[in-house]
Write a protein that binds this DNA or RNA. Structure first.
Lengths: 214, 214
DNA sequence: TAAAATAACTTAACACTGTTAAGTTTGTAG
DNA sequence: CTACAAACTTAACAGTGTTAAGTTATTTTA
């Protein structure tokens, strides 16, 4: 394989392309967070950025890919919200506050949450932003490491040994509280109680129920 | 108000209308359960039933109303799945099995679950099939009554007194397990564990963590 | 420096979608 | 027999994602 070094003009062009790519992503993100995924369309986005609809397809394969990249960036800011929680020493307490952070994120950025956790994203971007398995970038890895810590300290009941399983259980529980609120929160059929207290009781109750001391 | 008694031919017409309504609903349900909500469209449905697309609008206000009624019927069959669980005497054990039933339903009828619990349905049908608050028809009421039973028997921790809150917590947790599986189950990013064991551990752990004995 | 090639677009179109306005057939009521 | 309303159909509107073909400008090559 011959690796031709790119000429200066090629580099400049590549830089320009990256810039317009970013510009499109920025606008797409803004539209998504303001009008939701239903209020987003390629044509509206094109209108907004002053290009024709087809121009976007020069930079992104299709709508799914574009949304996939937006989601990837949302995951970065999502991960950022866990910084405060990171310094909690006690793993089980950290686990609880991680759950509350997810809830916080879901309430603050509902459309973002919907996009990230209520939609399948089959199209995986090639150059991923977040590094798989690295707890400082991958949220799931961070959750997993916390569970592992508690596990190694022998804080869970003896029959619970699978860190992946436990992590997925905790995430699913918290996910459920937020999702039900986002999807059915307006339904007058049910006399809904506030989300945060419910989440607290759920996560703390779960920790108590699964830990050795409980 | 003058209640004119309907003539025989009027009655027959009304019957015929109800019949085609049902026919449309039946086909709509079948399409939805086979091809999912994304594979459903008014025009395809019209094709299927041999009418023009607009004909459907004579029987239903719009797509949302039609889907709303389909969902309502799905809730009836959903409720039906709880019959076996109903005879469990011990309320906390019943609570656990109710959760497992929800999971069972979600795994067996994923598109149905998506339609019922992952979509907002602002349009409430006028003549509702299920009677609000009646535990033998309304699933939430059934859940609520079970929670109440355990609550009255003093089986929950003393600080937990709100039946609605507890019911919503339990439902959200189970909902989360199913939803995460349906939405992200294909994501190769995570090494997913089987759903049912996770659900069991979650619900039993939660019961243990929130109950007095735990 | 002129010609060829390539990047970065635009225009026009296709095949869909939900929904409505207006027209048509058909059976009932007076 | 006429009038009317029910139950439809046809045609159209406004929107969607996406592609094929054409255009313009810049860069590379002969």
């Amino acid at each position: 394989m011959e690796t031709e070094k790119p000429s200066p003009s090629q580099q400049r062009r590549a830089r320009q392309q990256q810039k317009t790519r970013q510009m499109i992503l920025d606008h797409a993100t803004r539209v998504l967070l303001k009008h939701g995924v239903d209020g987003f369309s390629m044509r509206k986005l094109a209108d907004r950025i002053g290009y024709s609809p087809t121009a976007i397809y020069f930079h992104f394969a299709d709508k799914d890919s574009l949304l996939g990249e937006v989601v990837e960036r949302q995951f970065m800011t999502f991960r950022g919200m866990f910084e405060k929680v990171e310094r909690i020493k006690e793993p089980l307490r950290r686990l609880v506050e991680m759950g509350m952070t997810v809830v916080e994120f879901g309430l603050r950025h509902p459309d973002s949450f919907r996009l990230m956790f209520l939609q399948s994203h089959p199209t995986i971007p090639k150059g991923r932003l977040v590094e798989r398995g690295n707890p400082s970038q991958d949220c799931y890895a961070f959750l997993l490491s916390t569970v592992c810590e508690a596990l190694e300290a022998g804080q869970f009941r003896p029959e619970l040994k699978d860190a992946e399983q436990l992590a997925q259980i905790f995430f699913a529980a918290v996910h459920g509280v937020v999702t039900v609120h986002l999807v059915k929160g307006d339904d007058p059929w049910i006399d809904w109680r506030p989300v945060k207290p419910k989440a607290r009781i759920l996560v703390e109750g779960l920790v108590r129920g699964l830990s050795r001391s409980g």
